[in-house]
Amino acid sequence: MSPILEYRDVSKVFFKGKTQVHALSHVTAEVGDGELLAIVGPSGCGKSTLLNLTAGLMQPGTGEVCYRGRPVDGVNTHVSYVTQKDNLLPWRTVAENVALPLGLGGRRMSKAERAERVAHYVRMVGLEGFEEHYPSELSGGMRKRAQLARSLVYEPDVLLMDEPFGALDAQLKLVLQAELLRTWEGTGKTLVFVTHDLTEAISLADRVIVMSARPGRIRAVEHIDLPRPRDVFGIRFAPGFGDYFDRLWSALRADLHQGQEI
């Protein structure tokens, strides 16, 4: 598999108010085309920075971020970015939110085609019947689904997800993980999934990267050779899951006390 994303010795410093934040230090990694990569690390370890660099919303301090071999030097519109907050536009209904990317930047599409595309993805995330609802009328889980539909609707090659299920309750999280896998498996899309939940990372990913506390470095990389399609409800009891968990946990544990107050 040729890498679709490459991070070459990337370091990054940025300002948060007046404080300097050393977010990343010499990160080198690749993401294969069609891979589901999970990045795990303590809070504030630069995971989100890595995604911001990938989306081109920030430029690396030193080093290079490449998309299909070319450095990312502006906003990277080949990716879709699912942020922690759902970031739906509150003045648009679900259907209008999902249709949003289809009308941007001179994307031209006939009305019928657009409606069909929107209906398809609304159905895929299970929001039929709620097309005309405003985000304020939806539950947290439904908003997440709408956000997911909106990021899939323009069919980008890479999906970046920043702790998308972080704020949801445990049961809903499992349901949405299952739906995410069902949606992703077989599409050939690349998915970079940031989380602080190790179980979530192992359940979903082909490969898990563990990052250290700030400044973020890569501490461990583990291929997860569990069979697909996976069942997120049962996979934690699958043979091998415990070993992955132990190895990654020992890499993660070293930093757990440092980054937490940030």
Partner: peptide, 22 residues
Amino acid sequence: DRDLIDVIRVMGATRLDAVRRI
């Protein structure tokens, strides 16, 4: 919300799009 602007820029929005839609 600047995050909304970032989000739609990644979706391919132009400056004019950002003004009109956000």
